[in-house]
Amino acid sequence: MTTAAPTGRVLVWHTSSYSNGAGGECVECAITSTRAHVRDTKEVDGPVITVAGSAWSVFLRGLNSG
């Protein structure tokens, strides 16, 4: 995991469908072929956490399993 913002590529950010724009605690993510990038929706120029795609998949499976 790194908190360095990715360089040299344009990322397409997706906000959670649970985000209502009212200033809640939401994150958005950008997925590439090998990495998942996550940032705070309120600080788009702030730090980005980057993890391997395999780690992101394990995280999502854990969320989906309850």
Rank of each mutant, 00 (worst) to 15 (best):
1 M>E: 05
1 M>Q: 05
2 T>I: 01
3 T>P: 00
4 A>L: 07
4 A>D: 09
5 A>M: 00
5 A>C: 02
5 A>G: 01
6 P>G: 01
6 P>H: 03
6 P>I: 02
8 G>F: 00
10 V>S: 14
10 V>Q: 14
10 V>H: 14
11 L>T: 06
11 L>D: 08
11 L>G: 14
11 L>A: 10
12 V>M: 14
13 W>K: 11
13 W>N: 14
13 W>F: 14
14 H>W: 10
14 H>Y: 07
15 T>P: 09
16 S>K: 00
16 S>R: 02
16 S>G: 03
17 S>H: 06
17 S>Y: 05
18 Y>V: 07
18 Y>M: 10
18 Y>F: 10
19 S>E: 15
19 S>K: 11
19 S>H: 13
20 N>K: 07
20 N>M: 11
21 G>V: 08
21 G>W: 10
22 A>W: 12
22 A>C: 15
23 G>C: 11
23 G>Q: 12
23 G>W: 03
23 G>A: 09
24 G>K: 01
24 G>T: 01
24 G>S: 02
24 G>W: 04
25 E>I: 02
25 E>K: 06
26 C>G: 00
26 C>V: 03
27 V>E: 01
27 V>L: 10
27 V>G: 01
27 V>S: 02
28 E>F: 07
28 E>K: 11
28 E>N: 09
28 E>W: 06
29 C>F: 15
29 C>M: 14
29 C>R: 11
29 C>E: 12
31 I>K: 06
31 I>T: 09
32 T>D: 06
32 T>Q: 04
33 S>Y: 12
33 S>M: 13
33 S>P: 08
33 S>C: 10
33 S>F: 14
34 T>C: 07
34 T>D: 11
35 R>F: 13
35 R>Q: 14
36 A>T: 10
37 H>F: 08
37 H>Q: 09
38 V>M: 04
39 R>Q: 13
39 R>N: 12
40 D>L: 05
40 D>Q: 07
41 T>A: 05
42 K>G: 06
42 K>Q: 12
42 K>H: 13
42 K>I: 04
42 K>C: 10
43 E>G: 11
43 E>D: 14
43 E>H: 15
43 E>M: 15
44 V>C: 15
45 D>G: 11
46 G>Y: 05
46 G>W: 01
47 P>M: 05
48 V>S: 00
48 V>M: 01
49 I>D: 00
49 I>N: 00
49 I>S: 06
50 T>G: 05
50 T>S: 05
50 T>Y: 01
51 V>K: 02
52 A>M: 03
52 A>Y: 08
52 A>G: 07
53 G>L: 12
54 S>Y: 08
54 S>G: 12
55 A>L: 04
55 A>P: 02
55 A>T: 09
56 W>I: 04
56 W>D: 01
56 W>R: 04
56 W>L: 04
57 S>F: 02
57 S>T: 09
58 V>P: 00
59 F>I: 04
59 F>Y: 07
60 L>K: 07
60 L>V: 15
61 R>T: 15
61 R>C: 12
61 R>F: 12
61 R>Q: 13
61 R>A: 15
62 G>Q: 07
64 N>T: 10
64 N>E: 09
64 N>S: 11
65 S>C: 03
65 S>Y: 02
66 G>I: 08
66 G>C: 03
